[in-house]
Write a protein that binds this DNA or RNA. Sequence first.
DNA 1: CTCCTATATGAAAACGTTTACATCTTATAG
DNA 2: CTATAAGATGTAAACGTTTTCATATAGGAG
Lengths: 342, 342
Amino acid sequence: MATIFDVARRADVSVATVSRVINHPGKVTEKTRQKVNTAMEACGYVYNALAMGLSTKRSRTIGIVIPNIINPIFSESTRGIQDYASEKGYHVILVNTDYLYEKEKRLVNLLREKQVEGLVLTTNKPGGEVVHGLIKDEFPFVLIYSHPKHPGVAFVGVDNIQGGFRATELLISLKHRRIGMIALDFSLSDRSYQRWLGYRRSLKKNGLPYDPGLVVQTEYAFEKGEKAVELLMGLPHPPTAIFCSNDILALGAMKGFKEIGKRIPEEISIVGFDDIAFSKFVAPPLTSIHQPAYEMGWKATEILFELLSKIPVQASRHRILLDTELAVRQSCAPFFKKKVKN
Amino acid sequence: MATIFDVARRADVSVATVSRVINHPGKVTEKTRQKVNTAMEACGYVYNALAMGLSTKRSRTIGIVIPNIINPIFSESTRGIQDYASEKGYHVILVNTDYLYEKEKRLVNLLREKQVEGLVLTTNKPGGEVVHGLIKDEFPFVLIYSHPKHPGVAFVGVDNIQGGFRATELLISLKHRRIGMIALDFSLSDRSYQRWLGYRRSLKKNGLPYDPGLVVQTEYAFEKGEKAVELLMGLPHPPTAIFCSNDILALGAMKGFKEIGKRIPEEISIVGFDDIAFSKFVAPPLTSIHQPAYEMGWKATEILFELLSKIPVQASRHRILLDTELAVRQSCAPFFKKKVKN
DNA sequence: CTCCTATATGAAAACGTTTACATCTTATAG
DNA sequence: CTATAAGATGTAAACGTTTTCATATAGGAG
């Protein structure tokens, strides 16, 4: 591979000059610039960004840590991050934690070894040692989705408690009294836990009892949502409405209900969380709590770059709460007491 | 930031030794290893993979080029790529071309500057200069989705012509005679073009005339599929069935039909391409041509690593055609001639 | 024509690793 | 107790940039 030296020799200039035509073309005569450019062409020169990174200590790369790129809610925010970063001439290294904290730890370290300049992090334990280590080392990062437990940590996301609350309020306003929840395991995801907190808060506010048997914690997959339905409907007093902590689980649950012949929303109401694009298209269209994922990614990256620029930013700019919206569609209906024949 | 030198000084050994405990712990006494490890701890040493990359000329990074991570078909294969790469200790830089060839060109160059060791490339012009340049420079890469025009280029994907053919055959077997196609613009995507080729082939085989007015080329978005429906249904002789070159367009089209009150599949049949996970859940569940996206990504990366290892691989191993499957669901129905009243 | 300034260029050190080669230890065989 | 081999460690160059500082050149004022 041709290096800057080869180009320099060929153009009969010094490496410094070559470097200059690459980085500060204005600081070089038109004539030399020409010479250097043709020399580059001639030896098929390709710039080595690694060497640059070593020399300048700026890799022009940031890291993205998410549970799973396949979840549309994360691919959307990823796209938001990428678009902002690419506008700034940065690249992005993407890793998936699969909600596994050990993996998260390992990957964050690897990313730091790769000299990413900063991190957009979806952590599953916002009070955990990963975040702690980052703070200790003053490593630039911004959290998305999960709220920081530490003061001063940059963050963009929605209020998950409020979201869970809203979802449950809707169901209660429809006269449902036994409301189940299918949630991502709390040990895996703090967000899921927060949403559950909102669910409980709504129950309490409305004087409804909390029945732990009605909430099933599970893993992230369509099929898990399906399975959860079996469990819930096997109960002596099954729920008449279900709040799912994400749309994937909700979609799985819908499938589960259809399979046992329960009609949605007539016999069972469902509300999801995330409002991924596809939820509009399922049958019936899923009512869900909308999160502005793309915007979250974009904004988070915006803040990350402010952090990188070392311009002191007031902390208030560092914590952005975007609004969730209740996207009401057709998966929920009022509850009517079944007439018991006998 | 602490470097290997700092560690060396602190542990009272040479940098070579430190490097050895990192890379070849077996080549170092237990005692020194201990010393070095504690020294690392003590100064909070973090390895610099950039410097390693410069020194060894191996960045342990590969590049992924796809049109858009938000499309589930691409996020699935991305995950396949990542999983394989991460098993090999590699990271992945991800870029989106948005089906823009200029962007593809630019991004491939940037990726090479970042010293990625190889590329998994979804190109929109498999005969274009991007691929050409890669070949010329003997840069390791494997194509996915789009078939190479050049011999010897590694590839994993499905037969798009056959896929388009199958989709159309299904519709024809259901007695449809006017079959439209909503396709991603051919200038944007070679795959879309290939699928159209299959569509035409099926028409021809069954003695059906090809009517260019029935195929609308558009961009990648739900709304574009919706718009296309308007166009098609405004025709004097509108189609009774539609083949969409991807599921996103198909979903958009379904929405469009619902909006003008056309019932699917009774009044209009639709088949998609890709069979993304969500297509099972829409109403009615979408009949689609299934592509094993995760597997494609995985296999492509497997091949890429063979290429990287420079072990000569026989060319046959380099071209993998996976099978498409026709996932028959409920978006297609037999065509019955409408009784014309007057 | 000379002097000064502004601008263009060059030399060399630095960035943090790896690694070939040299050197020093240590253990073992004789 | 010495010679030798094997193993542990160290030295220094190399990887391909950027950047500071020094130097050369050109242009304009006097």
